[in-house]
Simulated scan of single mutants.
Amino acid sequence: MASAIRRDRIFHPDGVLYRAEVKPDAQHGALKPLAKRLDGAALVRLSGALWRWPQGRRRPDLLGVALRVRGNDETTVRLLPGDQDLSFVTATTLLRLPVSTFATDAGDYLDNSYHSIFPYLLDDLGRVYLRLVPLQPAPAGADRNQRLALAVAKEKATLRLELQAAALGDDWHSLATIDLRERLEVDEDAFELHPGTSAMGLVPDGLMQSARPEIYAASEAGRRLTER
C-alpha cells in the first residue's frame, strides 16, 4: 500500500546499476570456500534510501547497496538460478537508522560503509554479519552519480566485502573485492531484490530476515500497480 501511494518503491526508489567483478580476497582459511563461491560476475545497485534523485540531493538520507552475486556470467537483470541477493545500508543496526541518516555522506557512494544489519547463517561458522567498505572516496564531481562514474572510469570504484562471526572473534575479515566496471544502460526499475535467496551459502537468519521477501515483493507489486 505504501509503495502504491508513493508511486514507487517504499525504500531506495531509484539508483544506478553497475556490472561488477568479484574477486576472492579471504585470508582466513574458514572463509576461503565462501570466497571461492563468490568469485565471478555481479550486479551492484547503489541508491538513496528515502528520496528520489536529484530532488532529495540536499536532504539527509541513507544510502544502500543491493548486490547480486551471480552463479553465471549473464548480464540480465533477472534473478537466475545460482544467484544470491544481498542488501546493505549506511547504518550498523536497525536502531541506528534514524541517527545514520544524518551521519551518511549522501553526496558520495564511495565515502560510506554499508552494513547488512540482519544476520546470515553460514556452515561451520553459524551466525555472521556482512559489510561493504569502499577502498577510497570518489573523485570530485557534480553529484554522487557523476563522482561514481568518474571512479569507475579510473578503475578506482572498489568495495571490499567483509564478514564478522563470533566464531572468529570480533574482527572483520575480508571475503572479496568488488570492482565496478560499467554502468548498465537498462531500466534499473526492472532490477528487483530477492533477499530470501541463499545460493552462495549465506542463509538469511531471524524473524526480520524471514519477513523481508514478502515486504520487498509487496513493495514491488505496489509500484507496478501505479505504472499501469
Rank of each mutant, 00 (worst) to 15 (best):
L225D: 01
H28K: 09
S87H: 15
L150P: 07
A140L: 03
L97D: 04
P139V: 13
E155F: 04
R131Q: 13
V203C: 05
I215F: 05
G196N: 10
T93K: 05
A138M: 02
L43F: 05
Q27Y: 04
L184Q: 14
D124R: 06
L168M: 09
H28T: 07
E182P: 00
G82I: 13
P13N: 08
H12L: 13
A91R: 10
V69M: 08
L161G: 02
S87T: 15
V22D: 12
A142Q: 15
Q164D: 03
S210D: 10
L86S: 14
H28Q: 14
R58Y: 09
L86P: 06
R58P: 01
G71P: 13
V186E: 15
G48P: 02
L148M: 04
A218M: 11
L207K: 14
R70L: 13
E227T: 04
Y216G: 05
L62P: 02
L132Q: 08
L125A: 05
L180V: 06
Y129F: 15
L161K: 03
K32S: 14
N72W: 07
T226M: 10
V99S: 09
A221N: 01
A49G: 11
E227Y: 02
A26W: 09
D111L: 05
E74L: 15
W172K: 07
L163V: 05
V16K: 02
L17G: 01
A42S: 02
R78S: 14
V128T: 04
R160C: 00
Q164S: 08
D170N: 15
A190L: 13
A41S: 14
R96Q: 13
G141S: 08
A66N: 14
D83C: 14
G29Q: 10
P137C: 09
L38R: 04
L202T: 06
L180E: 01
R6Y: 13
S116R: 05
D187M: 07
D83I: 10
A140I: 00
R224H: 05
L97K: 10
V77L: 14
Y120R: 00
L130H: 08
D108Q: 08
I10D: 05
E21W: 09
R45D: 00
A167P: 07
A140W: 12
R57I: 11
L94K: 02
P134V: 03
V77Q: 09
D14A: 11
P13Q: 01
P54I: 02
G48M: 04
T197I: 12
L86R: 08
D189F: 13
Q27I: 09
L34G: 06
R131A: 09
